[in-house]
Amino acid sequence: MSASTPQRHIRVVGLLPEKRAEYLRLHEVVWPDVEARLTASGITNYSIFLLGDRLISYYEYVGDDYEADMALIAADPTTQEWWTLTDPCQVPVPEAEEGQLWADATEVWHMG
């Protein structure tokens, strides 16, 4: 892991109203292996917030190769299985890139 300042990431996705209870239930206890993969890939201080029908995630990345670590998460079989449960609850926001669920927000200010 890098000793430099963590990279802060905020991402946004829509939550289908009819899947709200299911999504919240799933996140009452996130699978330990999913959390372990995130941690091993340099993700810390991860939170997901709910605002109306939008989910807002915040996490910090403390590794040295963000793209490689994200690829490790995406290739993890347990994480893939987790996503088969959570992805159907979500809908892309208009700001999401083509083919993506979550949209990345741009940081415009940080009190450091």
Rank of each mutant, 00 (worst) to 15 (best):
M1D: 09
M1W: 05
T5F: 04
P6T: 14
P6D: 13
H9D: 04
H9W: 08
R11N: 09
V12I: 14
V12K: 06
V12T: 11
L16M: 11
E18F: 06
K19R: 15
A21C: 01
E22R: 12
Y23V: 05
R25T: 14
L26R: 07
H27P: 01
V30G: 03
W31Q: 07
W31N: 05
P32E: 15
D33T: 14
D33Q: 15
D33M: 12
D33R: 15
V34M: 02
E35Q: 14
R37F: 00
L38N: 07
L38S: 06
G42I: 02
I43M: 06
T44P: 01
T44N: 06
T44S: 13
D53I: 05
D53W: 08
D53P: 06
I56H: 05
S57E: 13
S57L: 04
Y58L: 07
Y59T: 08
Y59Q: 07
V62G: 03
G63L: 01
G63N: 03
D64Q: 11
D65S: 11
E67G: 04
A68H: 01
M70H: 02
I73E: 00
T78C: 07
E81G: 05
W82P: 00
T84Y: 04
L85A: 13
T86W: 00
D87M: 04
D87S: 10
C89P: 01
P92Y: 11
E95M: 14
E95S: 15
E95Q: 15
E97K: 15
L101F: 09
W102T: 03
A103N: 04
A105S: 12
W109G: 01
H110R: 13
M111T: 10
